[in-house]
């Protein structure tokens, strides 16, 4: 049984790390600020959930798990606020997004 739990938590941890790396790669690969925002969103949502979830499986039913759940709750409550504030500030400052209608720029690589 504990082997199954270990397997589950390792898969979740590895999946979380993979999503984190994907988001970081997206940060380099996407053409403009607004699209990079979406790449960062991946690391803020499912990546955090998988890593904290994997740790929760290891901790079992305990206060440690409750704390991990609170960390996830805070991250999920604050990250959309931060993203929204960032996007709004950028748009207000006149940073125009590149949109698909005009052109479809290839990624920078």
């Amino acid at each position: 049984m504990s082997l199954v739990l270990d397997l589950v938590s390792w898969t979740m941890l590895l999946g979380g790390v993979f999503l984190g790396v994907s988001g970081a790669v997206g940060l380099f690969r996407f053409p403009d600020f607004y699209t990079r925002l979406h790449a960062a969103g991946v690391t803020d949502t499912l990546c955090a959930a998988l890593i904290l979830g994997g740790l929760m499986v290891q901790a079992g039913w305990s206060l440690v798990s409750i704390k991990l759940a609170f960390i996830l709750l805070f991250l999920w409550y604050t990250s959309p606020t931060a993203s929204h504030a960032l996007a709004k500030a950028a748009l207000r400052a006149g940073l125009g997004p590149r949109l698909a209608e005009k052109e479809n720029p290839p990624s920078k690589s």
């Binding site: 941890l13 979380g16 984190g20 988001g23 970081a24 940060l27 600020f33 990079r36 925002l37 960062a40 690391t43 803020d44 990546c47 955090a48 890593i51 904290l52 740790l55 290891q58 901790a59 440690v64 704390k67 991990l68 960390i71 991250l75 990250s79 931060a82 960032l86 500030a89 950028a90 400052a93 940073l95």
Partner: peptide
């Protein structure tokens, strides 16, 4: 531009949270 940098720093910060949590398990200090 400055917003890209803030975005990257924000990501660095949230990953720091995850890192501290995982490190607590690595050293068995919850």
């Amino acid at each position: 531009n400055v917003y890209d940098r803030i975005l990257a720093i924000n990501m660095f910060g949230t990953k720091t949270v995850l890192f501290i949590a995982a490190y607590g398990f690595l050293t068995e200090r919850p």
